[in-house]
């Protein structure tokens, strides 16, 4: 068991190195710091001096991989690669183009992100699984058919429309909640309700359908027949036997996203003007702030890898075949 976990943890290291290399190539090799400077300065005012100036200001003035000018270990460490990419491993994200500390920003902004993403995740999971269970319980009836069609309709609507529609209905017409914005402490609740509601509703379609498929697949297994032959009622078959087995495939898809909840939702946060990491990222994309984007890419990958690890761990909890081998 312990060796298994340790092995999975060690496996994360080459993945993060890979991510780091990919982002480095993407950000510094495909487009050189010169290109970046030129873009930021605007095409018209570009002079070689201005470019150099910009690079010095933002710390891109060193050689990319090997610094021939330096001596000893500095040959390798006094480079853009080391300064900008390797440092990410110790959570040193550097500073954004406007000079703010990215690490500080992330620490501040992840809470509003979580305030929305976590309830969406938990409530969403609960609601979709319940919906799916109810549909499966009514399998092979007209309600089942109707419910499946409804789910397909729900999942055919773009998330953007859920947000726009929700804002319009609850914010503009009914005036139940503010259309957008955010506040700290308990005041956050009134701002959070609508995004959470929308997040949950927009997930019902695809989630409900996926869980329904999983449940139905489990329902066809031999052990369900055994349970029925014991004289167990359909409800217990569903909740005790099927649900427990279905948790295995459900966990694969679900646990992996838990850590990435920290990243928030790009769309939701930008629509609702929530000062979380999602809107942070979008702002950075719009401002073409590569330092922030790079930091978020690395952070996202790290969280994803953590999610993979958690998935492996969660198996050991729900599946005795993994736990006991």
């Amino acid at each position: 068991m312990f060796a298994y976990i340790l092995r999975r943890t060690l496996y994360a290291i080459p993945i993060l190195i890979g991510v780091n290399l990919i982002t480095f190539v993407l950000f510094f090799v495909v487009n050189t710091p010169d290109d970046m400077a030129r873009m930021h300065l605007g095409m018209k005012r570009v002079t070689p001096e201005a470019i150099t100036q910009w690079k010095v200001e933002h710390g891109y003035d060193k050689p990319l991989l090997i610094n021939d000018a330096a001596t000893g270990l500095d040959k390798l460490t006094d480079t853009v690669f080391f300064e900008k990419s390797v440092r990410l491993f110790v959570f040193d994200f550097g500073s954004s183009d406007d000079g703010r500390s990215i690490g500080e920003d992330i620490r501040q902004r992840m809470w509003p992100s979580l305030a929305i993403a976590l309830p969406v995740f938990l409530v969403g999971l609960l609601v979709t699984i319940t919906v799916a269970l109810m549909i499966v319980f009514l399998h092979a009836t007209y309600i089942d058919l109707l419910a499946v069609v409804t789910l397909v309709v729900l999942m055919s609507i773009s998330g953007l429309f859920y947000i726009i529609g929700g804002q319009f209905l609850f914010g503009k017409v009914l005036h139940l909640v503010p259309v957008s914005g955010y506040d700290g402490g308990f005041n956050a609740i009134k701002f959070v309700i609508l995004p959470v509601l929308i997040g949950v509703v927009s997930g019902i379609g695809s989630g409900g359908r996926w869980y329904r498929t999983i449940f139905l697949e489990e329902m066809g297994k031999d052990y369900v027949r055994t349970a029925r032959a014991k004289g167990i009622g359909e409800r217990i078959v569903l909740f005790r036997h099927v649900l427990k087995n279905a948790m295995i495939p459900i966990l694969t898809g679900v646990v992996v996203v838990i850590p990435t909840l920290f990243m928030g939702s790009l769309i939701m946060e930008s629509f609702f003007a929530v000062p979380g990491l999602g809107s942070y990222t979008i702002d950075a994309i719009h401002a073409q702030d590569f330092a922030v984007v790079r930091a978020m890419v690395f952070l996202g990958s790290m969280l994803y890898v953590l999610g993979l690890l958690l998935t492996d761990l969660s198996y050991t909890f729900v599946d005795p075949r993994v736990r006991l081998s």
Binding site: K221, D222, Y223, A229, H241, K244, N245, D319, P320, R321
Partner: peptide
Amino acid sequence: MIFQEPMTSLNPVL
């Protein structure tokens, strides 16, 4: 009733 496939006829997680 008992079935042909004892391998799959028991619930693996109980």
